[in-house]
Design a protein around this nucleic acid. Structure first.
Lengths: 201, 201
DNA sequence: GAATAGGGATGACAAATGTCACATGATTCA
DNA sequence: TGAATCATGTGACATTTGTCATCCCTATTC
């Protein structure tokens, strides 16, 4: 019997999957939750064989939970189940040594198969993911630049950014200029769009 | 026996729901698809009792499909199943005389209940939706203003917007200024953020 | 100890942006 | 018919943005 835990903030999917998985003779869902925080508490308590984690959830992401599981040396294996084939997400997942990374646009049968395969020690990455990885852009921005860009993304003016970050007006403009040149764009909106499309935030 | 059609572009959810619904004695899923165009073709051919439609899908939205169904005077009833409790979406759904509007963060059992209730002639709106409707902002922008804002949202500069829309530079700036004043903001980025948050695009 | 790189800052400049007041022709509505 | 409204445009203005060259200070490295 393989025991499972399901963390997914979309109830429709979460409840549907839980019911389906429980129909399988060899699978048992020990619990579910809709946010990363309770997910981690539950997992640490219930110690399921496999935790199926969505990435974008309230309070803590599935990747945060995966980190926690790794740090606590639990035997629980992790399958990430997400909409997003983003390089950055995938890279973090690999660092957290997850056993599987599935996309929500594969059918639910794939999840069942993945669960059984992961249980035998295999590592499962969605093939579409690997394709997307190739032409995905790496984030070329420094930490500081990202902070500036994030603030700009909120619609903050140069002056407001400068005040928030305790920098001078000119410095902020320099940072933005450097950001644009790195990204090959010429204004804030384009830079923000690019960052959002690549999920750099 | 209630016959169903399922249009949902996220395979994981679509396949899971289809399996679950088919487990019910009185329900039968005639078909599924992941885009609005094939959904409409299938529905017109299969004439299910109820079509369950996601809104945001490739090629045509669920609301487009609902319009088609209404225009063709099919007996098929429509249940919209979406992530978004947006005023604009809901208003369009009501205009298309849909029989139900459910959010994906309600459990799948709710969907089953809704299907049976809709079949008896009831109209089902997610209660959370009604709550969200109250404090949701209406889009105060004119069509032309929306076009301008959309272009700006792509990162286009004033000049580029003017060229695209065959307007003078000054006119575009006037439009943007009017937009900002209506929205209570002071630059493009803020305006775009507000529009995106309210799903005005 | 000199060279180098990186974070932060200045000053200067051109261009873009945001704001206003106002003009004109077309449409709508009383 | 006349008033009101709307879409579009102009000109003028103050600010903000984006770009660049250059500078200072502090680590880091050879």
């Amino acid at each position: 019997m393989i025991t499972l835990y399901l963390a997914e903030d979309q109830s429709m999917l979460s409840s549907a999957l839980a019911q389906l998985l429980n129909l399988e003779d060899d699978l048992k869902v020990l619990g579910t939750s809709g946010d990363g925080q309770t997910a981690w508490l539950d997992i640490n308590r219930l110690k399921p064989d496999i935790a199926i984690l969505d990435i974008e959830m309230p309070k803590a992401t599935g990747l945060d939970v995966a980190d926690d599981i790794l740090a606590a040396h639990l035997a629980t294996k992790v399958i990430i189940l997400t909409t997003f084939a983003q390089k950055a997400y995938f890279a973090r997942a690999v660092k957290a040594k997850v056993s599987g990374y599935l996309l929500k646009d594969s059918p639910s049968d794939d999840l069942v198969t993945a669960i059984r395969n992961v249980m035998t020690g295999q590592t499962i990455y969605d093939p579409e993911l690997v394709r997307n990885m190739v032409n995905a852009a790496d984030n070329p921005l420094s930490d500081q630049e990202m902070v500036v860009l994030k603030s700009a993304a909120d619609g903050d003016t140069t002056k407001e950014i400068a005040e928030k970050l305790f920098l001078s007006n000119g410095t902020v403009r320099n940072y933005l200029s450097a950001i644009f040149s790195k990204l090959g764009v010429h204004n804030r909106l384009e830079a923000v769009n690019m960052a959002k499309n690549n999920k750099w935030f």
